[in-house]
């Protein structure tokens, strides 16, 4: 089981800021799409360093050839 955490701030004008935590790689894109579907249109996305780490579900196989 993986834990995802979100910190959501809804301003008095209704604008929403979502901090997505617990993701590595582009797995958070699916979460972003969920919030877009519920709330509206994305105005800005700031990706942190973890965004550029390998996707969690992608397995990298090193094949050695002789």
């Amino acid at each position: 089981m993986k834990t995802r955490e979100y910190e959501i701030t809804i301003s008095p004008t209704g604008e929403v800021e979502v901090h997505l935590d617990g993701f590595k790689g582009k797995g958070c894109l699916e979460a972003i799409r969920f919030f877009e579907k519920v709330i509206g249109e994305t105005k800005d996305v700031r990706q942190t360093s973890a965004f550029y780490e390998p996707d969690e579900d992608v397995q990298i196989h090193n094949e050695q050839r002789h």
């Binding site: 209704g14 604008e15 929403v16 800021e17 979502v18 901090h19 997505l20 935590d21 617990g22 993701f23 590595k24 797995g27 958070c28 972003i32 919030f35 877009e36 709330i39 509206g40 249109e41 994305t42 105005k43 800005d44 996305v45 700031r46 990706q47 942190t48 973890a50 965004f51």
Partner: peptide, 12 residues
């Protein structure tokens, strides 16, 4: 942390 997203709401 992976990303921070700012979303403008649409009221429908």
């Amino acid at each position: 942390m992976s990303a921070i997203v700012i979303i403008t709401p649409i009221v429908i």
